[in-house]
């Protein structure tokens, strides 16, 4: 295992140990491990489709070195939507509002909007747009995504 570092972290509630290269991105390491709900878009920190929660904060996994997450807690969108009421409400709201077209940006959008509401974000369309400003969607024109987040932010109390 020359040139590789073993990182141990909590992924979606389970302890995981992965050998990673020093220059490998967290996105790449997790997709190798099977987390294909993390989407590989720009790989340059610009599009947000690889977003996940790292110790509770929404981050872009394509620019974070996998070697640096030792001992941390990671949640990805699919598992979060299964176990967490807020994330589940967001996923349902995205479906109800027609906020999903091709779906490529959706996991990242869910993560960014989850972090926004957890931070105390309100049902304010301008503020939601700012919160999602690092996540690109090439299909919907954002209106329905903002609708979906607004609906949950207006009814959910953290």
């Amino acid at each position: 295992m020359r040139g590789k570092t073993l990182v141990t972290f909590n992924l979606n509630g389970c302890e995981v140990s992965l050998p990673v290269k020093a220059e490998e991105s967290l996105l790449n390491a997790l997709r190798r491990h099977g987390c294909t709900d993390l989407k590989c878009g720009c790989e340059a920190g610009s599009c947000g489709s690889c977003a996940l929660l790292l110790d509770g904060l929404a981050v872009k996994s394509c620019i974070i070195p996998a070697a640096s997450v030792n001992g941390k807690q990671i949640w990805t969108a699919a598992a979060l939507c299964e176990y967490d009421t807020l994330a589940k409400s967001l996923a349902e709201s995205f479906i109800d509002c027609g906020a999903v077209q091709c779906g490529f940006c959706t996991p990242g959008m869910i993560i960014a909007s989850y972090a926004y509401i957890k931070d105390g974000g309100k049902a304010d369309r301008q503020a939601i747009r700012r919160a999602l400003s690092g996540n690109l969607c090439r299909c919907t024109g954002y209106k329905k995504i903002v609708d979906a987040v607004e609906k949950v932010a207006g009814s959910f109390f953290c």
């Binding site: 920190g45 929404a58 981050v59 960014a112 700012r130 690092g134």
Partner: peptide, 9 residues
């Protein structure tokens, strides 16, 4: 600065 996700790191 950049966007909210980048500001986290």
């Amino acid at each position: 600065f950049a966007d909210p996700l980048t500001r986290n790191t």
